[in-house]
Amino acid sequence: MTRSIAVHSYKGGTGKSTITANVAVALALKGRRVGVMDMDLEGPGLHVFFDIDPSDLRFTLNDVLAGVAPPEAACVRMSEKMNLNGGELYYSPASVRLSEIMRTLKTGYEVDMFENAIKRLQEKFGLHYLLIDTHPGIMHDTLLALGVCDHQIIVSRVDQQDIFGTGVLIEVSSSFEKPVHLVLNMIPPGVKESEVSKFARVIGAHFTTEMAGWLPWSEEVIGSLSRSVLTLKQPKHAISLRFRALAETIEGFA
């Protein structure tokens, strides 16, 4: 059975796409069949992580949501390119063409089209996990998409403004009656794990969410300029181990 997992955040720049790409690869490296959808239709960026030239793409998710292409036609098989040790990774990119982005924003999309795309990819590729990178914020289309997925991962920085919005987002997302998991990212250096855990307990006491993991501030991640997947490039690096741990937590999602 496939689990669809939306990776969302209240604000941009929280590392949502970095986490999506690295966790997807970590799951694939464990032999899982993984799909990744770039539903950040206003500002897609996953193609940079996966080193995809947008001009090579015949179809994108925008075409799928507009009903002009089947979901599998807008999918790139990454397994061989990334040498994923028997795992499979299928990537559904969003269009980076401004005209198509504007068209999608202008017209929106039907949630049924999105849901059908999920189902089709799950059936076509026999996916174990489908990670969906969303557009940040409390937006109509995005919230509707969140409500369709099996799990929601909310990514937040430890920043007062971000935490405030994340709290609101968790409260709102919880009303969809789907499990909501929190990932704290870019934890400043010097903060001990016990402090993060304490903070997680505080959050857990007030909101309907579970802490799925936390990731420290990483110069390597920032230095990579989103051009590579660190889990693949430096598998032994501490941050890669964190991504793997997060992948294992996801495997334990009920």
Binding site: I163, E171, V172, P188, V191, E195, V202
Partner: peptide, 25 residues
């Protein structure tokens, strides 16, 4: 005081959050 400052940065104003969330809901 570094840790204390950090701790203060991540304080939760639960009431304000719930109030805002209720407005959205």
């Amino acid at each position: 005081r570094r840790k204390e400052v950090t701790h203060r940065e991540v304080k939760l104003d639960v009431t304000a959050i719930k109030h805002q969330a209720d407005q959205v809901k």
